[in-house]
Design a protein around this nucleic acid. Structure first.
Lengths: 222, 222
DNA sequence: TAGATTGTTAATCGATTAACAATC
DNA sequence: TAGATTGTTAATCGATTAACAATC
């Protein structure tokens, strides 16, 4: 009974959640108390029904004619994503991208706390970058075991990404956020999220190229 | 007849293309000449039929029992995405992320060439970062018009993202690659690709949180 | 009350997977 | 030849959109 069959959450819905959050926190700043999904849908150019369905996934219940209470909705979404519980993470690779990630303050508000950085480069080991200590990658396994950290962020080059992933998995890391342009092989049970810049670039390039081809051959105008 | 009805390419297929390319370029380095989609599918944990369909989108024709010629397949995919034609881009915002993007050499191979950076910060204006000159954002509009650059990359904070987007659109930019955590409003005809870190983080957080909840309540084991 | 909005069920749309003939 | 693999059509699956009753 308590174990109600939880059907899997659509991934697209999950990816929209932070988008709603951003919009909502703006409203919250303006001290708006109620929001309708009609408003959110218009603001974000989405279908109102889609928004309603997404929001209902988080368990919130709205009031007909009024909408949803902004503050409660924010909490509801954050809980749904898991951002109300802070998770610690280790980051491997403090080149330009890794450094940028350490410098980006926004993760704190998203339940993520990068507590240590790691690298192979002796010049970087022992330093602090944006306030975070950088250690030798060799020290990662025991530290994962001691701290119970579950999230590993890979910001190394493509060539060493797999070996870093292997090390993380062996150490007990359960979720990997991969910024390296490489497809990682990991055992079942380990979660990988790829942040694949080239995928987005491909979509942009293709769409732009198509528009340009169309323009240079201005036969039928739409 | 030449104007064959081009049905829209599925976005997921497009996003997989760079993944295929990475795998293929490894084979190419090893001087492997032929590849089957069975192989690609196994390597990338995809359905073989899906791979076959994706590849056929690019127009390549394979040989039964043999597969596809690696080198030709690479060219075919690159042409399909539009990466065989180099496109110039302007980047606005050279904070830690923008700097990282300027330092990342990988875009060259993906048809993207960041030729200038822009910022508001007088301390940065006039300098060079990773070999790229940084100018005042005010100089962007005339330069877009002079150069005909079509792609703008937004790497500023959330609060100024919309105004940068407005400026780009007004200047004639046709495609925006948005790294700011903000939803941009742009007119029809302008293409926006969001590189939304928090979306991926949400997926990872949620899946990890679910695994953990399950573990702390080890009733039915799968 | 009237009307805007929620919540839910049904219909549509798009992407993936299955089935199978063609072929080297 | 036999068998692996391509290419394509049909079936399934999942996500979005449409329709509509319930409600404040």
């Amino acid at each position: 009974m308590a174990d109600k069959l939880q059907k899997p959450v659509p991934k697209p819905s999950l990816r929209r959640m932070p988008v709603y959050l951003r919009c909502l926190s703006q409203l919250d700043l303006q001290e708006t108390e109620w929001v309708s999904c009609t408003y959110l849908a218009e603001e974000l150019r989405l279908d109102p029904t889609l928004v309603r369905k997404d929001l209902s996934l988080t368990g919130i219940v709205g009031k007909p004619k009024v909408g949803y209470p902004v503050a409660e909705l924010i909490r509801s979404i954050e809980h749904f994503i898991g951002w109300d519980i802070k998770a610690d993470a280790f980051l491997v690779g403090v080149g330009s991208l890794g450094t940028a990630l350490l410098g980006y303050g926004g993760f704190q508000g998203h339940g993520l706390n990068i507590i240590l950085g790691f690298d192979y480069d002796p010049a970087k080991i022992g330093t602090r970058i944006h306030g975070t200590s950088i250690l030798n990658v060799e020290e990662l396994p025991p530290l994962v075991q001691q701290t119970g950290v579950q999230i590993g962020i890979i910001a190394v080059g493509a060539s060493s990404a797999q070996s870093v992933a292997d090390l993380m998995v062996l150490s007990g890391i359960r979720g990997i956020w991969n910024f390296a342009p490489a497809h990682l092989q990991v055992p079942d049970g380990v979660i990988v999220e790829n942040e694949d810049l080239s995928a987005s670039l491909a979509v942009l390039s293709r769409r732009l190229a198509r528009v340009n081809r169309q323009r240079s051959r201005p036969r039928s105008r739409r």
